[in-house]
Design a protein around this nucleic acid. Structure first.
Length: 960
RNA sequence: GGGCCUGUAGCUCAGCCGGUUAGAGCGCACGCCUGAUAAGCGUGAGGUCGUUGGUUCGAUUCCAACCAGGCCCA
């Protein structure tokens, strides 16, 4: 190369370098991600080429890994929490595929239940329409199907692989059929029973209300203190409790006098201190802390308080009901508070939730002498037919007449109202269906099953065990329209509902065939083929039982947790090409109460054992301060907006980067940081790809011939890959992210690649040194792209396609690739030596810095380094590295022009290297002239007259 | 109020069975380069390890209480 005629500038030899133009580099792998545009293209590539289906086919003979999808509720677009969950599942699927498993994944949807019914009802009411259950269900179905569609698109956009063409949905006839078959088995085994339970009840509509249909509003009620005369409380309070001639009673407080007829007990707190308040006429038991309040409310001025035992001592004593010939049992409960009342709580198990629970514990009757219209029944004859609210004054009068009313006031407080009519509602015991944890040893079986499962993290086991320990029963019936019916037959002249296993099984078959709507059609008197079949089934069943007469079908539906809790039965079978049990359930930690428990209960109850071998839970998405996300707090991140703004890969990286066992923070700031990390990964891929543009598999250099530094970085990669696989194996995805990030940033970008630039650009194109580097770079790049593909699914596919165009990989998609058998672990002493050299390099860089600040040196290539090494072994290592072939020699590693090493103490002008004790560094400006081609300072430039400005090494590369 | 969980630099994470000046990457500041360039390199400043007690010769690491937050119940 010579100067072009007429110029006086030195030639720059740039065209002799192995450098790509910007355009060439862009063609290989664009620098800018443009994820929002490019990701859909990658998606189309996967879909058009049926990559997931081919993955299944390719691995069909491999061991299976079944991740059973917990069905999200189909009532809206995805949110950041759903993103978290689905991405974790996809990372799992993709990493298991890399590990060689066959990974079937059928996404599911939970379709029934109140939120949808609610939403549809609102629309119906807004239009003032009048529709029946059947019509309502049709609209609910449309609603669910619409959102399944929307969510499917959202999930796919995140890059989630799976059988989107064969999802499972709890509204599918096949699903409902399986669910009812499972239910039949439970009935057969005698696990299902009927009992009373108080629910919110709207007397106006004569219907049960869900909690979401209840609004709390101010309401004025009577506030009364009532004396329950002692039967045997005397024995507990002892002799020194005032004048024994005064009657002793237990004092209760209530704002619903009408529930007194249903009183069966009085609840004490086991740990509170109680007293006997002695007045001029009475002795009354109450909590010490509330005594003054009671006295004030009752206008009592003269009284004495006598110590009584703590609450626990009162257990099992009895009082007389104030106006019914019945006993009231004294019992204990932690729900008693000191906020108001007397500390002795009027307990009517048929009219309150906590009363119910404590009643169950003590085996009390769930008693409720109130009918569906909110009127007293014949069980309370004095007031039969009266509406309960209207009966309050009468009951108060009754108390007053018997002298058991201590005080009466009015109180305005928050009280449940019907959300439609805004009328006060009541709590009333109604017949419900239950699965008992007590029967057939179910609880013990559940706990034993829990023991067989791997809970990740481990505390999941404690959490679910504690819940099972405390759970008495599972109420599986709901008075709703949008659900799977409980197939019970009701005889007109009977209180009973019949659950017949045979009938349920045949009904289930009918459902699998024609859908569950037939039940509701029959209730509404619609006549068609299927309702005729159902009616015939009912008749046949009744006949077989020897019963006759008019019948009706019950209107109750199954709890939606029963739906999703049946998914193992409906999905993990041949119809989906799956098998039982699943290897993994992966959901948020709230599902210990929800899906994990309902699935486990249903599975164990039918004798199938736990439906999962392992259960993995993740935390919830919160903001940077650890607070929950909310639109009103302004910390809300809209999932689809984030995908549009940053791209799915950024969200995927975010999911991977945080430890999901705790809560996961998200904010714009955090996503921006993930974007920075993404850029680093992307630029590294790009640098590697462009450095390999002239490399062919046949250029591969054998391991033994690799330059030493190349062997070192190859070894570092092998170690890292092992660690990455291990992290995936343990579901520690955040370790994958952090390990890869550090490797990319430190080992590659700051060290290896920076050092390699000289070799890749200036050395002879097909010489051993350059090919040696490329050999290792291919390995690292392929491995990185593969191992990071579960995280950055889109970008890694993009990089894989670039590798394919360069002829460096075979498989059509990174999804179809597999991890190779683990490579032999690298030479430990080599690693140790070079780790030390890189520590030394930090000392050298630190020593150069002041020179740079002083303006004596700009690029490190302008420096010459003297190293003083005290230890002989250190000296030997440095010395031998100095003499390694170009590219692997110490000067190349330090990116300086010259290195001299000395054995012994430091001389003047040196800096101690911090990380390598016993080594001192002196930095001096390198002598000689700058080679215009490789930019090193060299003393013997111009060995050949026609190339006066380049060094010997460059001469070789340039040839002539 | 109860069960389970979380709390290390601005952010995301490491810190094994308690033991020398608590680490990393990002971000930030300053500087270099212009042959990864809407890139790359170097150096540096940031932490009373949620708080308070206790155990110990010694605690971020063990125990207790408390505070803040999360999930599930109530």
């Amino acid at each position: 190369m010579t100067n072009p005629p007429g110029t006086s500038e030195k030639p720059n030899y740039k065209s002799t370098l192995c450098l790509l133009s910007k355009g060439e580099a862009e063609a290989i792998f664009p620098q800018r991600a443009n994820l929002v545009k490019r990701e859909p293209e990658t998606l189309a590539f996967w879909e058009d080429n049926k990559i997931y289906e081919r993955l299944r086919e390719k691995n069909q003979d491999s061991p299976r890994f079944i991740l059973h999808d917990g069905p999200p509720y189909a009532n809206g677009r995805i949110h950041i929490g759903t993103v978290l969950n689905k991405v974790l599942k996809d990372i799992t699927i993709r990493s298991k595929a890399l590990a060689g498993f066959d990974v079937p994944y059928n996404p599911g949807w939970d379709c029934h239940g109140l939120p949808i019914e609610h939403k549809v009802m609102q629309e119906v009411r807004a239009k003032k329409e009048d529709i029946g259950t059947f019509e309502l269900r049709g609209r609910c179905r449309d609603y669910a199907l619409h959102f399944i569609d929307v969510m499917e698109q959202d999930f796919k956009r995140l890059g989630v692989l799976g059988h989107w063409d064969k999802p499972y949905r709890t509204l599918d006839p096949a699903f409902e059929g399986h669910e009812l078959q499972l239910f039949a088995t439970l009935v057969e085994k005698g696990m299902v029973y009927r009992n009373l339970k108080p629910v919110y009840w709207c007397p106006g509509y004569e219907t049960a209300l869900a909690e979401a249909e209840v609004e709390y509003m101010d309401h004025t009620s009577p506030s009364i203190y009532v004396k329950f005369p002692s039967i045997d409380v005397e024995g507990v309070v002892g002799q020194d409790c005032g004048d024994p001639s005064k009657p002793l009673s237990v004092l209760i407080w209530t704002t619903t006098p009408w529930t007194l007829p249903a009183n069966l007990a009085i609840t004490f707190h086991p740990d509170f201190e109680y007293v006997v308040m002695e007045t001029d006429t009475d002795r009354m038991v109450m909590a010490r802390e509330l005594a003054a309040q009671v006295a004030e409310a009752a206008g009592i001025e003269n009284y004495t308080l006598h110590d009584a035992p703590r609450g626990a001592e009162f257990e099992d004593k009895k009082c007389k009901h104030p106006f019914i010939d019945r006993e009231s049992l004294l019992i204990l409960g932690d729900h008693v508070t000191l906020e108001a009342g007397s500390g002795c709580v009027h307990t009517a198990p048929g009219h309150g939730h906590e009363d119910y629970l404590v009643g169950l514990k003590y085996g009390l009757e769930i008693y409720s002498p109130v009918d569906g219209k909110g009127r007293f029944t014949a069980q309370f004859p004095e007031f039969e037919g009266q509406e309960v609210e209207a009966a309050n004054p009468g009951i108060i009068r009754l108390l007053n007449d018997s002298g058991l009313l201590l005080a009466e006031k009015k109180i305005t407080h928050s009280y449940p109202h019907d959300w439609r009519e805004k009328k006060p509602i009541i709590f009333r015991a109604t017949p419900q269906w239950f699965i008992s944890l007590e029967r057939a040893n179910l609880r013990d079986q559940l706990l034993a099953a829990v023991d067989q499962v791997e809970w990740i993290p481990k505390w999941g086991k404690d959490r679910i065990s504690a819940m099972l320990d405390n759970r008495v029963e599972w109420c599986i019936s709901r008075q709703r329209a949008w659900g799977v019916p409980i197939p019970a037959i009701h005889l007109k002249d009977s209180e009973e509902s019949i659950l017949d296993p045979e009938f349920i099984r045949e009904f289930a078959n009918l459902v699998s065939e024609t859908g569950v709507d037939v039940w509701f059609e029959t209730i509404e008197g619609i006549e068609n083929d299927r309702t005729a079949r159902l009616k015939a089934l009912v008749e046949k069943t009744l006949e077989a039982k020897g019963v006759s007469g008019e019948w009706k079908l019950d209107k109750d539906t199954l709890d939606v947790w029963f739906d999703s809790g049946s998914s193992h039965h409906a999905v993990l079978n041949e119809s989906y090409g799956l098998s039982y049990p699943a290897d993994l359930y992966l959901e948020g930690s709230d599902q210990h109460r929800g899906w994990f428990q309902s699935s486990l209960t249903n599975a164990v109850a039918i004798g199938a054992g736990a439906p999962f071998k392992a259960v993995l839970t993740h935390g919830f998405v919160v903001d940077e301060e650890g607070r929950k996300l909310s639109k009103t707090l302004g910390n809300y991140i809209e999932a689809n907006e984030a995908v549009q703004e940053y791209g799915a890969d950024i969200l995927r990286i975010w999911v991977a980067s945080e430890d999901f066992r705790g809560d996961m923070s998200v904010s714009k700031e955090i996503l921006k940081q993930r974007m920075e990390a993404y850029r680093r990964f992307r630029n590294t891929f790009r640098f590697l790809l462009t450095s390999l543009s002239d490399f062919k598999p046949e250029d591969t250099v054998e391991e033994k011939d690799l330059l030493e530094i190349d062997r070192y970085f190859h070894g570092k990669w092998i170690n890292l890959e092992g660690n990455l696989r291990n992290a995936y194996e343990k579901y520690e995805f955040h370790r994958v992210y952090h390990l890869a990030n550090v490797f990319c940033t430190v080992d590659l970008s700051a060290r290896y690649l920076d050092i390699l630039k000289d070799r890749l650009y200036t050395f002879e194109r097909s010489g051993l040194a350059r090919r040696s580097a490329q050999t290792v770079l291919v390995e690292i790049l392929k491995g990185m792209v593969q191992s990071l593909s579960p995280l950055m699914a889109f970008t890694c596919e993009e990089a894989w396609q670039s590798l394919r165009r360069l002829g460096l990989v075979e498989e059509e998609s990174v999804v179809l690739s597999k991890w190779a058998a683990p490579t032999e672990s690298p030479d430990g002493s080599l690693i140790e030596k070079w780790d030390w050299l890189f520590d030394l390099r930090e000392g050298v860089n630190a020593a150069i810095e002041p020179e740079r600040k002083a303006g004596k040196i700009k690029q490190s290539l302008q420096a010459s380094i003297d190293l003083f090494l005290k230890k002989e072994e250190d000296f030997d290592r440095a010395r031998s590295t100095m003499d390694l072939p170009p590219g692997s020699d110490l000067a190349s590693v330090l990116i300086v022009s010259e290195v001299n090493v000395f054995h012994g103490d430091a001389e003047g002008g040196t800096v101690e290297a911090e990380k390598t004790p016993g080594v001192s560094v002196r930095v001096i400006p390198a002598q000689g002239e700058k080679c215009v081609r490789c930019w090193r300072m060299v003393e013997n430039l111009g060995a050949r007259p026609n190339h006066p400005d380049i060094c010997d090494r460059c001469l070789e590369a340039v040839g002539d």
